[in-house]
Design a protein around this nucleic acid. Structure first.
Length: 581
RNA sequence: GCGCCUGUAGCUCAGCUGGAUAGAGCAACUGCCUUCUAAGCAGUGGGUCAGGAGUUCGAAUCUCUUCAGGCGCGCCA
């Protein structure tokens, strides 16, 4: 029906001959015809007259009068009124208003879908945590967010590819390997453990499994490895890495692959538990080494050099990023010939664009925001439209348990992992609360609340509505065996208690669309909260199963739709609606 | 110092590309269970939308500025 009203609005705009086509284009882009926030204002509302007034410097109320008359004359709608500063409020004929119930019941899991994505391909890169240890709760928010926007974009007509970038090439992996190496040979190393090595218990676990499978032995004296290391923490670990690589080359490679694989497996397991899936796992190492002229890293840097954006200074290769607004230029290749993380990332983004995506979304921790300019500059330099890239920042979440802040990590290497969180409150509650606030803002995540059974716990409040509906439907099925296929007394207007619920239902597609264009899943959460409230209120005021058979049929048919809306909404967040509480 | 984010009820937060009397939960107070799940519903009180200026028919929303808080500014990843 919104489409029909917009058709009339098109004619209305066409009839205004003192406004030029350019202005009309602006108006068409800006105005909105939507479901009203409240039934008191009718069913559908449009602000087109106010937009027209501001663009063309006219009187909104006068325009509203004209449009009201046009819409009224069509007799397509029950009533049309101009209201407030110039809104057009349309009340639909009963059958049109209630038709959304049929629509929901017909489309089921597809209710809410749209084609705003126009089948464009979009790649979402998220989590991409260094494979040096298990995922912790800091990664959870990005995981929930990236996965949710993937689902929302898919439903909105985008072709979505979700990717995890594995930093398996840098120093961090060397430190991981070294840490495990020491644990494997802990008898030889006795108490020795470098300050900057990883200390979590998972390191020891990986070491134990490696011993079981390989029963390795050192071919050199351990003192050759650990004696006379530099005192500086950073230099100490770097020197140790070098010595192990040199003295135990095959063991090193073997152990490195093993450790990386173990950690990645644990990451994948956790993500699976968290109901997050990826289409691609991209290995940084596949970009090759800068020393190899045929590698992608070298190719990307050469391209930048050819364009005179990359240059040599103080023995290093720099990228001119400041010309694109960065604070200073950045190093691509260090003076010792090793590539920086940034160089790999430039090559990685070149690869992404070469794969032909229409749109790239990077989900990054908010602490990386200083990095955006840099990567944009490199895309610019490689001749790509930086508008294709959208970086979504995810702020840290502070977790509170027993009223106290949960420490993310400690020196000892112990931390509250994503797996711990899932064990504590479950995947669904965790995802829900991660997504309950705009991603780029600080989130205080109260674990006690997430487990509590009060109304304050929005998650259970919504689930409870779904469970109540399921319970009614089950009871109906026990009595009548077959679910109703229409809502007679609702569509003919003899039963109106569901009207508010129907009105809420009709808002859903627009919520999904907004959530899609803003990349904000939390909009769905707040919608569901309102929707659940509308249902609970209805449930209290109406005793469904003692109504007349005709009314019961209608209500149940309508509630099947309500159930679909809740489970679809939660589904977009990667959360399963529960049928019984 | 520079850059980004935030400031809405006592608390935690919504507020859709500027729009109709600024909303919800918690907390406080008052009602509602012999019938479908009370993890629920209905109601009352509570606001200088951090302060100031501007843009306009119209600002919590946009611009500027002040104040307060958070984060980022490596040849780390």
């Amino acid at each position: 029906m919104i489409k029909s009203i917009n058709n009339h609005i098109d004619k209305f705009l066409a009839s205004l001959d003192d406004i030029d086509d350019n202005q009309k284009g602006i108006i068409k882009n800006k105005y909105a015809t939507t479901v009203t926030d409240d039934l008191k204002k009718g069913h559908i509302t449009s602000n087109v007259c106010m937009i027209t007034a501001s663009v063309a410097n006219k009187n909104p109320k006068e325009l509203a009068e004209i449009l009201t008359k046009m819409l009224s004359d069509s007799s397509e709608f029950k009533t049309v009124e101009s209201a407030g500063p110039g809104f057009i409020n349309v009340t639909l004929h009963r059958a049109d208003f209630t038709s959304v119930v049929n629509e929901v019941n017909k489309n089921l899991i597809n209710y809410g879908e749209s084609s705003i994505g126009k089948s464009k391909s979009v790649q979402i890169e998220f989590v991409s945590a260094n494979p040096t240890g298990p995922l912790h709760v800091g990664h959870g928010r990005g995981a929930a967010y990236g996965d949710a926007i993937g689902r929302i974009l898919s439903l909105s007509g985008y072709k979505v590819e979700k990717e995890y970038y594995i930093n398996d090439a840098g120093r961090q992996i060397d430190i991981l390997t070294t840490s495990v190496f020491i644990k494997v040979f802990k008898k030889h190393f006795t108490d020795f453990f470098p300050t900057n090595a990883y200390k979590g218990s998972y390191i020891e676990d990986i070491g134990s499994i490696f011993i079981d499978k390989n029963n390795p032995e050192l071919s050199v004296d351990v003192s050759l490895l650990k004696d006379d290391l530099p005192i500086d923490e950073e230099k100490e670990i770097d020197e140790l890495i070098l010595r192990i690589k040199k003295n135990e080359p095959s063991l090193w490679l073997n152990l490195k692959d093993f450790a990386l694989n173990e950690v990645l497996t644990s990451i994948k397991d956790d993500l699976k538990l968290f109901n997050v899936s990826f289409d691609q796992w991209f290995y940084e190492s596949s970009l090759g080494d800068v020393s190899d002229k045929n590698s992608q890293v070298a190719a990307a840097i050469n391209t930048l050099k050819d364009k005179e954006l990359a240059y040599e200074e103080k023995g290093a290769i720099w990228l001119n990023t400041s010309s694109s607004g960065d604070d200073k230029n950045r190093v691509l290749i260090r003076d010792d010939g090793r590539a920086t993380y940034f160089a790999s990332d430039v090559a990685y983004h070149k690869d992404k664009v070469d794969r032909g995506f229409n749109k790239l979304i990077n989900v990054w921790g908010a602490d990386h925001h200083g990095y955006i300019k840099r990567i944009e500059a490199s895309l610019d330099g490689l001749g790509f439209e930086k508008e294709k890239l959208s970086v979504q920042l995810v702020q840290f979440a502070n977790l509170f348990k027993d009223g106290k802040k949960v420490k993310m990590s400690t020196r000892s290497g112990d931390f509250y992992s994503l797996a711990d969180l899932i064990k504590d409150i479950g995947t669904d509650a965790a995802r829900f609360y991660y997504l309950s606030k705009q991603a780029d803002q600080h989130l205080d995540f109260d674990l006690d609340l997430a487990k509590s059974d009060t109304k304050e716990n929005m998650f259970y409040y919504i689930q409870y509505a779904h469970a109540r509906i399921c319970s009614l439907i089950t009871k109906y099925e026990e009595e009548y065996s077959q679910l109703p296929e229409s809502a007679q007394s609702i569509s003919n207007g003899s039963y109106k208690s569901c009207d508010k619920l129907i009105h809420e239902m009709s808002k859903y597609p627009n919520v999904v669309a907004r959530s899609c264009s803003a990349l904000q899943p939390h909009l769905i959460i707040f919608y569901l909260k309102d929707f659940a409230h509308t249902f609970h209120s209805f449930y209290n005021d109406n005793h469904v199963l003692t109504e007349s058979k005709e009314n019961i049929d209608s209500i149940i048919y309508c509630l099947c739709g309500a159930k679909t809306v809740i489970s679809n909404g939660l589904g977009l967040l990667g959360i399963k609606a529960i049928e019984k509480m």
